[in-house]
Simulated assay, not measured.
Amino acid sequence: MVHAHAQVDQPVTLGITPTGDLDGASRHYEKKLGDMAGVYADETAWQAERSVNGDDSLVYYVNEQKYQEGPGALIVGTSVLLPGSYGNEFAVTRGHLHGVSDRAELYYCLSGRGVMLLETIDGDSSAIELTAGQAVNVPGQWIHRSVNVDTEPFVTLFCYSADAGQNYGIISDAGGMKNLVVRDDAGWRTMPNPRHTGYTVGVTQ
């Protein structure tokens, strides 16, 4: 039921480019090499990259637009993950499970080539390659992270509920995700992460 005098948010027009520019964004944030402590399995390779390029070297950035808080609103944004590797592991985002863990998220590839690495606490796993024009609808209860397996930026458009939040600690507390995305002769493959100790954080509905 719509109340005659209820406050109603106004529609928002967004300009989105294949390179990840978002005209109308309400927030921009960046993750740099120094922010990625503990993310890569090869700590030595990460430290070597820091010694060459410094902690301020950009790894990825996000533009997002949110018009209100609460479960009825959506966050829409773009993620730009730059190419790179650390040992044989490709560049990744930190990854997360949603704080309200049954919240889903849509990722649509605008340009580049990447992999959406997905895992559940119960042990299911999937790695889905995305190129421009392809999307993955990530259900709730799936931990997910973007991986750039190409030499160009991996750019995605994402959309999720504004009340979802992000739980980044579930990955770091487990020593990283269960699987890594690494280079091989065919381009990329997954392999077990030797540092992974298992997910122990309970799922919040």
Rank of each mutant, 00 (worst) to 15 (best):
E30P: 00
C109Y: 00
V115E: 07
V59W: 01
C159R: 04
D55P: 00
T44H: 11
E69T: 09
K32I: 09
L81P: 02
G169E: 15
V138H: 02
Y199S: 09
S146Y: 03
V203C: 04
G202P: 09
T156I: 14
G165K: 02
S101G: 06
A4E: 03
M36Y: 01
T190W: 03
E30R: 02
V80A: 06
N193W: 00
V147A: 08
G140V: 06
A162C: 09
G20P: 04
D163E: 12
I143P: 06
S79G: 10
P153A: 11
D184W: 02
G123N: 05
D21C: 07
I143G: 09
K66G: 13
A132K: 01
G187E: 14
G176Q: 08
P194I: 06
Y168C: 12
L82E: 13
L110N: 07
L82I: 05
M1A: 14
R145V: 08
D150S: 15
G202E: 09
P153W: 02
M1I: 12
Y86M: 13
A48Y: 03
A186C: 08
L33M: 12
T13D: 13
A41P: 02
A132N: 04
Q68V: 05
N193L: 04
V201I: 12
T131Y: 01
P71G: 04
G140Y: 03
V138S: 06
A25W: 00
T13P: 01
K178L: 06
D173E: 15
Q134Y: 02
N148W: 02
E30F: 00
R27K: 14
H144G: 11
G20M: 07
D56F: 01
L157Q: 11
P11I: 10
T197M: 08
W188L: 11
V203R: 09
N167P: 08
F154Y: 15
G15V: 10
N53K: 11
N179W: 09
L82A: 11
S79R: 00
